[in-house]
């Protein structure tokens, strides 16, 4: 039972991190990253390869974060001037290119067979159920650091400029803000968080292959961000948790409807994701939480 619970919690934390990255990139900076699964895949593979090469936790983690930062900055450098819909297409194209690379460079990535036997970090200190618990604590600590980082970013002047850019980049530019460099940094900050997510993903599952990184990752992340209220980090936690509970909950569909085979149950879950996303957009587009705003309390203005 503890094993199952920690497994769900770790999965929730990883997807919350992916959504947190999207919340900085899209929620705050207005950059529609449809290719988020490509960045996530790249950082996961880098983490896996470095762990397989025998590097310890800290080094693989840093390598994964660096991969996220560098790739995001490069993609943003090329495409951050584009309008939102073009940006979405460009990032999706990048993600598909990553997928092609992972599928075809078999010598490095194992191709469609993936990479098995990725060593798990800190395995010297615990085993069995207590290891599951230890990994959960590790994931929790890393996620907490990322959350504090995102929250600090949101409340900083930097975050304020990002929201200004999102609302109207022309006004922000007129006020002397360097739109391009702000966007690149925002995208890279999201990339850093994706690095942490990728590290946790590959080291927790111990096996990765290209099918784990599909467009559905993008859909989950958008759902979590929209449900949580675009731009709100606290809301995002709620959003990510409720989306994952929904998803994990639908695993039990198969028990309720035994006449479905495994493939049908899986596709029914994905149909529900699509329907859920659309319903959210129609009925609750502003989400359940408000984003951070500077508040003026009574007496502050004196």
């Amino acid at each position: 039972m503890i094993g199952y619970l920690t497994a769900i919690l770790v999965v929730v934390l990883i997807s919350a991190l992916v959504a947190l990255a999207l919340n900085i990139q899209w929620g705050q900076a207005g950059m529609v990253n449809f290719g988020i699964f490509g960045f996530f895949a790249a950082t996961s593979y880098v983490a896996a390869l470095s762990a397989l090469a025998g590097y310890p936790l800290l080094i693989s983690l840093v390598l994964a974060i660096l991969t996220g930062v560098v790739l995001s900055a490069l993609v943003a450098l090329v495409s951050a001037r584009l309008r939102e819909d073009y940006f979405a297409i460009a990032t999706l194209a990048f993600a598909e290119a990553v997928r092609l690379f992972l599928l075809n460079e078999t010598w490095l990535t194992g191709g469609a067979n993936g990479l098995p036997g990725i060593p798990r970090p800190l395995s010297a200190y615990a085993s069995g159920q207590s290891y599951e618990l230890l990994f959960f604590v590790l994931a929790l600590v890393l996620a907490a650091i990322c959350f504090v980082f995102a929250q600090a970013l949101t409340k900083s002047p930097f975050g304020r400029v990002l929201r200004a850019l999102r609302e109207d980049d022309l006004v922000a530019a007129t006020l002397g803000k360097d739109v391009l460099s702000f966007r690149i940094w925002a995208f890279a900050a999201g990339g850093a968080i994706l690095g942490v997510a990728g590290y946790l993903h590959s080291s927790y599952f111990g096996y990765i292959d290209p099918t784990q990184f599909g467009a559905f990752v993008t859909a989950y992340a958008f759902m979590a961000v929209i449900a949580g209220g675009r731009g709100s980090n606290t809301g995002l936690l709620f959003g990510a948790v409720s989306v994952m509970v929904l998803l994990e909950g639908t695993r039990f569909l198969k028990d309720l409807m035994p006449f479905l085979d495994a493939g049908q149950a899986a596709s029914l879950r994905l149909i529900l994701i699509g329907v859920g996303l659309i319903l959210l957009l129609i009925y609750k587009p502003q989400g359940f939480f408000r984003e951070h705003r500077l508040r003026v309390n009574k007496g502050d203005t004196k």
Binding site: A88, A215, A219, F222, I226, G274, G276, L277, I278, L281
Partner: peptide
């Protein structure tokens, strides 16, 4: 609308 069309794609 863009995000909605991803939802439609899934369905």
């Amino acid at each position: 609308l863009l995000v909605a069309s991803i939802g439609v794609y899934f369905v």
